[in-house]
Design a binder for these strands. Structure first.
Lengths: 142, 142
DNA sequence: CATCAATAGTTGATGCATCAATTAATATAC
DNA sequence: GTATATTAATTGATGCATCAACTATTGATG
């Protein structure tokens, strides 16, 4: 363990490493970043949605959303238009072509996720999720 | 849970979120990124070390190491010199001034870490660490 | 209804990481 | 001992996230 003295610090460091490793493997397996996959996933589940709404769901900066969507638009995965009732809003939806491609991404993601949690029993996953949620609560109070 | 269908995917997403939250809070609490803190921490524990050796310990790209160290050198936290026995190596060490500052960082980090794991019992931490390690092994085989 | 506030989206600057290509020094092999 | 391979460090291009500043649109208030 390279990080430090305390056991807690080691856990923190491991979390940090795991995340880096997951990001990296995710991208090489699925062919896009977790964030971008998440955006597409959200779009898949709705008909049309405003950027702000989308931003709240995927929990990344609105500037980042803009940039992702511009690129996705450029490769014709998505379509954008102004909301005619309120021109401040931009409505986003998957293109037909985009919607089709996502199925294959989903399959690959499912496979990936299964590998990450190989040999985890249901109750262990439950426990892990509980602990992570507790950590999340702790952090939010820092 | 915004990410997806399966329970595993939710855990993955939570990991991803936690990491973002931790990074952000870490930086606002300690005043530097986790990586940079880690670099300084490593330097604190040795007298002098080559960049490559350091790179292996903190587990980030050597290009990133170079850039971190340049900045740390600019603010006179560290010193660098060529290894006289082999001019390919650059040896790095903390400046006196740097070494002094790190004590306060350590205290702050300890406080931070304690908050993150508030209400975790020793055996829970142990369990968490075990599970994270297993995940790490799984990933490395993907 | 004119001004002021709030909201959505965009852009620019910055930080940090990666990979690929390059430079410089040293080691190896014939 | 000269050509070749290896190694350490650096640099440039790129990706992705953040914050802060700005534009454009709409809402609210006097």
């Amino acid at each position: 363990m390279t990080n430090s003295c305390s056991e807690e610090a080691s856990i923190l460091y491991t979390l940090y490493c795991i995340n880096k490793q997951i990001s990296s493997k995710f991208e090489s397996c699925i062919g896009m970043s977790q964030s971008r996959h998440d955006i597409l996933q959200q779009l898949y589940q709705v008909d049309e949605i405003s950027q702000t709404e989308l931003q709240k769901k995927v929990n990344i900066d609105s500037a980042a959303i803009t940039r992702h969507l511009k690129q996705l638009e450029a490769v014709e995965m998505i379509l954008r238009r102004k909301n005619p009732e309120d021109n401040r809003f931009t409505l986003v939806c998957l293109s037909d072509h985009g919607r089709k491609k996502i199925n294959s991404y989903q399959a690959e993601k499912a496979r990936f996720v299964t590998l990450v949690f190989k040999d985890f029993k249901e109750e262990e996953r439950q426990e892990l999720m509980d602990m992570l949620t507790r950590i999340q609560n702790n952090i939010s109070q820092v």
